[in-house]
Structure formats: structure tokens, C-alpha cells
Amino acid sequence: MTSPFANKRTLTFTLLGALLLAFIAWPILRTLTSNSPAALWETLLDAEVRRSILFTFSSSAIATLIALVLGVPLAYLLARVNFPGKRLVEGLIDLPIVIPHSAAGIALLMVFGRRTLLGKAFGLVGLKFVSAAPGIVIAMLFVSLPFLVDSAREGFEAVDARLERVARSLGASPWGAFWRVSVPLAWRGILSGMIMMWARGLSEFGAVVILAYHPMIAPVLLYERFESFGLTYARPVAAIIILICLVVFTLLRMVNNGGNGHSSTNHARAGSPDPAG
């Protein structure tokens, strides 16, 4: 292991990188440390804050589950099948990343709004999207599904297609090969896609606020506190949200890396000389 300061280029790159890291870490640390513990505690006891946080978590989780059911099969097809227009489909999947999220909210409103065909149809079964929880879920789904589909696709692509063929030759049906070989091997990609999608869903503001200002998700609540009461009142809410996201995100990353760590030790063992061989 060479020292990061071994030469001038590495030294320069390290300094530039450190600048960027500080740019991320400093504001977050400032937000977390600028509040008195009492203020934080008080905010935590605020029922509205707690409700909005839980509501955000569950909405994003539902969006993630919907994408799991609809997106993982698509990811598998994209990884395994070549068809005309495949590039187009891949582009379409990534489109929500580049569209401004407020524009995405408007676009969803055009289809799921009260007076639209789909809006009316869903209205018949008592499902409404504008100013309602389902609207928040579809807004989160729209803007964050690329993360799950792309990650699951990469997961499936990393599974050698011949493993599925061997499974078929051993008597497994196409479904059997998918469940017993492809999914267990691509699981890490799927899981990490779910984490990223869920986290991205949590932080959505633009699309959600267009479809449903109420019921309030945490980012909207924060925005409202800031607009109505100013920085002093918004600050502890921001700190709480950041803190919770940090904790959850760290936990999920540990789950994810736990899996990766397992595989990398396997590789290390495979690479070492084998006494039995």
C-alpha cells in the first residue's frame, strides 16, 4: 500500500477530493450540531413530525414494492433477451432521472388527475391520487424506479446464462431456473437497487408536492416549517430527518456490504492455493 502522498499528482487529487467530501459533510454536520439537544427532543415529541416521517418511509416502501413486482421481471428481460427497441426501453427506464421532478409531477397529474380518464377509473374503486397518499406513492415510484430496475438488471447480467441452462438440463422449468438460480444469484443487485430506490423515494420533494401537498411527507413538512416559521424552526426538523436517514441508510448498507463481503472472501479463498487440489 503506497502512501496517498507518494507523488504530487496523488496529493493534488487527494486535496481536490477532500474539498468535495467537506462540501458534503460540513453542511450535514452543521445542521446536526446547530441544535440544542432539548430542541431536538422537543421536535421528536412533535406528533406531526413523527407522523410525516413514518408516512414518508411507508410511502417509499410501497413504491419500492410495486417496482419490485413490475420492475424485476423487466430487469430480467433486459438482461437476458435481445429484442428490437431494447435501447429505447433502456432509455425510457432512465428518463425519470433526467426530467426535472416538478415536471414529472405535472406529467403524472396529466394522467392521474381528477378529470383524467385514469383518474376517473381509479376514482370508481375509491382510489384518488391528487392530495392523497396514492399520489405520493406514484410520484415516488416514477422518480426512483430507475434505480431498482438498473441495479436488478446489472445483478441478472452478472449471472452466467449457462448456469440457467445447466439448471434446465437438470430438469428445472424456466420458472424453476429463475427462482432457484437467477434470483438467488442476482439477489444482491436487487436488494441494493431496493435500498437505493427507497432512499431516493424518501427524499423526493418536487413531484410529490405537485400531486399532493397534503398529506405531508417529511420533506414537505420541512419546507412548510421553513416558509411559515423560518430557519430556527426548520433546523431541528432537518436535523431529525437527516439523522434518521443516516441511521437507516447505514444499516441497510451494512446488510448490503455484508453480502458483498461474503462473496469477496470466497474469491480470496478461491484464489489461494488449495491444499486438496
Binding site: 441452462r165 445447466v166 434446465r168 424456466p174 444469484l185
Partner: peptide
């Protein structure tokens, strides 16, 4: 006939063992 109904065993050059 689909492969699962043929009872034809297949061994690839690089073994293709299930790593999981």
C-alpha cells in the same frame, strides 16, 4: 422438447457450478 424434459446432462468447459 424443452431441455428439462429431455434428460440430457450437460457439462460445460468451465464447470458452471452454482456458486450459491
Amino acid at each position: 422438447l424443452p431441455p428439462e424434459q429431455r434428460k440430457v446432462g450437460f457439462v460445460y468447459q468451465d464447470y458452471a457450478l452454482f456458486p450459491h
